[in-house]
């Protein structure tokens, strides 16, 4: 049996966490700017978006968290054959603990039985890490930070839903998603990005929904039916008039991203990962040559 590669990625992983927590991706900034431009000048909605944009810039300059709720860190790790996932997990955990000590992350892992905060963001199933082996000669890791306020308004529907007249089709999906946005009001820190999964089971549904949040907010879904549905829900959710922070206004959602997973014949879940405007995500790319780190880059 050949030896697994020995790599030290703690430092790049720490930078990945710092970047995710303090530097909002440019596509999100542009979506917020677009929102601000369409609000009434001087309105609470416009002022809220102005404050948000100012905060984003300040956080980037000072390298401090955009939002104090640095959320659940969710790592999606793509790695080539020969790299030990146990090694990567240990290094991710080390980087997360160091990031907490640097105040890039708030200590956010609470023991559900004792109420004790672990103090370093490590705990049972915390952080979330998913591993995917692939054929490329590089390690590619995405990190998203999913805050608790928006997690609390995330929700899952079981179709058909008679209250909403929602059947097992895309029209049914449209109805329940609009209901979720209505129910959330400003509580999940609107304007939101909606990550949506059609199908899966109750577990994979949310997983696929959260993965949609990794997409650029202005990208186009390759499936034309889903692209049309994303556009329609985007327009209609904004017509609800909930606005930034629930103050009322035109900017309630910044993006709608829909994916699908196979389901059981008996089940039709629609899972909605409601993400606050601080849709924090970052990428780490580690190019390997002859089993050694040749190049590290971030996005």
């Amino acid at each position: 049996m050949s030896e697994p590669l020995k790599l030290d990625l703690v430092e790049p992983l720490l930078e990945l966490v710092r970047k995710a927590a303090t530097d909002l991706p440019q596509d999100m900034v542009e979506a917020l700017e677009k929102g601000k431009a369409q609000e009434e000048p001087g309105s609470a909605a416009e002022q809220a978006l102005g404050t948000i944009l100012q905060n984003v810039e300040m956080a980037r300059e000072k390298s401090t968290p955009i939002c104090q709720d640095t959320g659940t860190p969710i790592f999606e790790v793509h790695y080539p054959f020969g790299v030990s996932t146990r090694m990567l997990k240990a290094q991710i955990e080390e980087a997360v603990a160091q990031a907490t000590a640097h105040s890039y992350l708030r200590p956010n892992a609470v023991d559900s039985l004792t109420g004790k905060n672990s103090g370093n963001n490590l705990g049972i199933e915390f952080p979330t890490i998913h591993f995917h082996e692939w054929d490329e000669d590089r390690i590619f890791i995405t990190l998203q930070l999913k805050g608790g306020g928006s997690e609390n308004v995330s929700t899952q529907y079981k179709l058909p839903d008679s209250r909403l007249g929602a059947g097992r089709d895309l029209e049914g999906v449209r109805r329940v998603v609009l209901d979720a946005v209505l129910k959330a009001q400003g509580k999940g820190c609107a304007p939101a990005v909606l990550g949506i999964a059609i199908g899966g089971d109750r577990g994979t549904g949310y997983m696929v929904a959260k993965k949609q949040l990794l997409r650029k907010v202005n990208d186009l879904n390759p499936n034309p039916d889903l692209a049309a549905l994303e556009e329609r829900i985007f327009v209609e959710a904004n017509e609800l008039g909930i606005g930034p922070m629930g103050f009322g206004g035109k900017t309630t959602v910044l993006g709608v991203k829909i994916g699908a997973a196979h389901r059981l014949p008996a089940c039709y879940f629609v899972s909605i990962a409601y993400m606050c405007w601080a849709n924090r995500r970052a990428e780490l790319n580690v190019k390997l040559v002859d089993g050694k780190v040749a190049e590290v880059s971030y996005a």
């Binding site: 809220a48 404050t51 948000i52 100012q54 905060n55 300040m58 956080a59 000072k62 401090t64 968290p65 955009i66 939002c67 104090q68 709720d69 805050g147 306020g149 400003g186 820190c189 922070m245 103050f247 606050c276 405007w277 601080a278």
Partner: peptide
């Protein structure tokens, strides 16, 4: 009083 959710660095100032 409603503060701006997520404006954490700004409010810390």
């Amino acid at each position: 009083f409603h503060a701006i959710g997520g404006a954490a660095t700004l409010i810390a100032q």
